[in-house]
């Protein structure tokens, strides 16, 4: 496929809890190419979210190297990271993380607001984004007036509105029933076909199988998908 958009080598992240040290990420290396649909699968507590936050520039690596589009993330300051999050990355959280006092439309507009898009264009693009996820008629609704699946779709529209190169989804269907999960997954597949690089985190093998590449993570260590892992994860 294309050139690598993400290059990670020997990434480490440890948390100290009391006297104990938890290796949330232990010497993780991976390359992800443009246009890939990658699933990262692993049991709860294995370090999936920690990795995702790292990929999404929400957190900095303690050691190791992270090149995004060839740029070294470890050397960037807070403002530069904010700009990267705003323009290159769309983040979808398990618990949606919508602003509860803002309408669906206003939530979708937010990334454009921070990138300085003028008001008219902002509105148009946000509406278009809501349209893509099938929620145009709910633009004025507050998150509390929407179902879980609808909220997650608003979150997807928000992640997409800035037209980012990479879409990161941390267990996006974890809080949704299986029917809604399928719908959300379908949306993500479509987006991948449109050329977005998608990294999906899940502990559900069925969902992971939808991706065209799968890696597993256990105790902070990554393993490229081997057929034998599929058997190991059958319990999830």
């Amino acid at each position: 496929m294309g050139k690598p958009i993400i290059q990670i080598s020997n990434l480490m992240k440890t948390y100290k809890l009391g006297g104990e040290t938890v290796h949330a990420l232990n010497d993780v290396s991976i390359e992800i190419e443009q246009g890939e649909f990658l699933a990262i699968i692993g049991p709860s507590g294995s370090g999936k979210s920690t990795l995702m936050n790292m990929l999404g520039c929400l957190d900095r690596p303690q050691s190791g190297k992270y090149l995004l589009d060839g740029k070294d993330i470890g050397k960037m300051n807070d403002n530069q990271l904010a700009t990267i999050r705003n323009q290159k990355i769309g983040f979808i959280f398990q618990n949606f993380n919508l602003l509860t006092k803002l309408s669906a439309l206003e939530n979708v507009e937010l990334p454009l607001l921070y990138s300085g898009v003028p008001v008219k264009e902002r509105r148009e693009r946000a509406l278009e984004g809501l349209n893509k996820v099938g929620l145009k008629d709910r633009a004025g609704h507050l998150p509390t007036q929407l179902s879980g699946g609808q909220q997650q779709r608003v979150a997807i529209a928000r992640a997409l509105v800035g037209n980012p190169a990479i879409l990161l989804a941390d267990e996006p269907t974890g809080a949704l029933d299986s029917k809604t999960s399928k719908e959300i997954l379908l949306v993500m597949k479509e987006l991948n076909e449109l050329g977005h690089t998608i990294i999906l985190i899940t502990h559900d093998l069925e969902i992971a199988k939808q991706a065209n590449r799968m890696v597993s993570i256990q105790d902070g260590q990554l393993q490229e998908n081997g057929g034998e892992l599929v058997g190991d994860f059958a319990i999830y």
Binding site: G56, L58, D78, N79, A82, T83, R85, N86, Q87, F91, N97, L98, L99, L110, P111, Y114, S115, R158, G162
Partner: peptide, 15 residues
């Protein structure tokens, strides 16, 4: 929490 969300989607500290 609100500040966390805003920063996650690209708000700078001064925003």
């Amino acid at each position: 929490k609100e500040i966390g969300i805003r920063k996650a989607i690209g708000a700078k500290r001064r925003d």
